[in-house]
Amino acid sequence: MTERIVKVKDIIDTLDKITGGRVVKGREDLFCGKNPFVVVKSSNIPGKAVMEIPGIVWGDLNKPVRKLAVAMTLTECKIELAGATGVDVIVAHHPIADAANSGGVTLKNYLGLYNIAAIELHEAFHGLHPGISYIHGIKAHRVDIAYGGIPGNIMYVGTTLEGIETLGDILNRLREFMNYEVEEEMLESERQVRGCREILETNIVTGGKIFNGSIDSRVKNVLHIFPHTGFTPEHLEQVMKEHPEVDTVLATISRVHEDSPLVLKAQEYGLNFIAGNSHAMEIYENGLPLAAALNYYLGRDVKILIFNERVTSTPVEMFGSKAVREYAKYITENFLIEKGK
């Protein structure tokens, strides 16, 4: 039996199949709004806008692919990991920007050096599945990925799954799905090995939290929002007109503070407010299903990997080895501070 040779263009075709035809087919898709998932994201900071282009960003479409890695955000760490382990193509969920996602150097030179192709999806993958709601024990019956006419402003309305009756049930479900027990053990092990109790880790410190209500508060009809996408108190007012049955606001991917206008507006309506998984956990929500779908279509011919994300913080005086801390002291004292100060 002849071995099938999968090429980058076959990965693009497979992603187009998975997304229901949302991948860019050619240059014509970049203009005149032909592909609605080609979106410019900008905070109006001069020179910092980026255009999302679901599809190939860099690489040879005819390059053979034997190893493929799914990642959330492309970084130099992941490029180095891919280069060292023979990965042929990285499929990144988030948009890729020249230099910003490649350690300050150009994508062409960096990815070209290791002969790695790069593909992005982001908005083209959003709205394909209700996974984040499902993880939190919610079945979405309304999905809007541009609520209020804002691209990427995702809003779900749904009801709880069987067995989810209180806010505490949601928190317990998250602990099971996200394997918090193991994450906590890993953090504790790292603290012991490095001899520093002050090390913190993103997934632990951003765990589920109740803002309005208690673990015993009843929940049935849920508004599921993503604060960082632009969901405002005014949007909440509009949703309550459209869905007065809502009793709980679930905020995921991004977080809010206790005095957030969204939390306060929810209090006015007598709504529970709970924060679930942060953006740091999206590799499980979107990355794992995408990788599983690619494995379904390509698994016999391509090894599918997931590049996980784990970020910790450590006080500067405890970071690294004694030798590298002495190095930092030497560099600082001799090159980075004014003499005589």
Results as ranks from 00 to 15, higher is better:
V8P: 09
I12S: 12
K25H: 09
D29W: 04
D29R: 04
C32T: 13
V39R: 06
V39Q: 06
S42D: 07
I45Y: 07
I56H: 12
G59L: 00
P64S: 02
V65S: 06
L68Q: 01
L74Y: 05
E76T: 11
C77E: 14
K78P: 02
E80C: 06
E80P: 02
E80R: 12
G83I: 01
A84K: 08
V87M: 06
A92F: 08
H93K: 07
A100R: 13
A100H: 08
N101D: 12
N101K: 13
G104W: 03
T106M: 07
L107W: 05
N109T: 11
Y110W: 13
L113H: 15
L121W: 05
E123Q: 13
I135V: 14
K139Q: 10
R142F: 15
I150C: 14
I154L: 04
V157F: 10
G163K: 09
I164S: 03
L167G: 00
E188Y: 12
S189K: 10
Q192C: 15
G195R: 04
R197S: 15
E201T: 10
N203I: 08
K209G: 12
T229G: 09
G230T: 09
H235N: 14
L236I: 00
D247A: 01
T248N: 03
V249K: 01
R255G: 14
H257K: 15
P261G: 06
L264T: 14
A266F: 04
E268V: 09
Y269M: 07
A275C: 07
G276L: 00
N277V: 08
P289S: 04
P289R: 00
P289Y: 03
A291W: 05
Y296V: 08
Y296C: 08
G299N: 01
R300C: 11
E309S: 14
R310C: 01
S313N: 10
S313H: 13
M318Q: 13
K322I: 06
A323R: 15
K329Y: 10
I331N: 14
I331E: 14
L336D: 05
I337Q: 14
E338F: 09
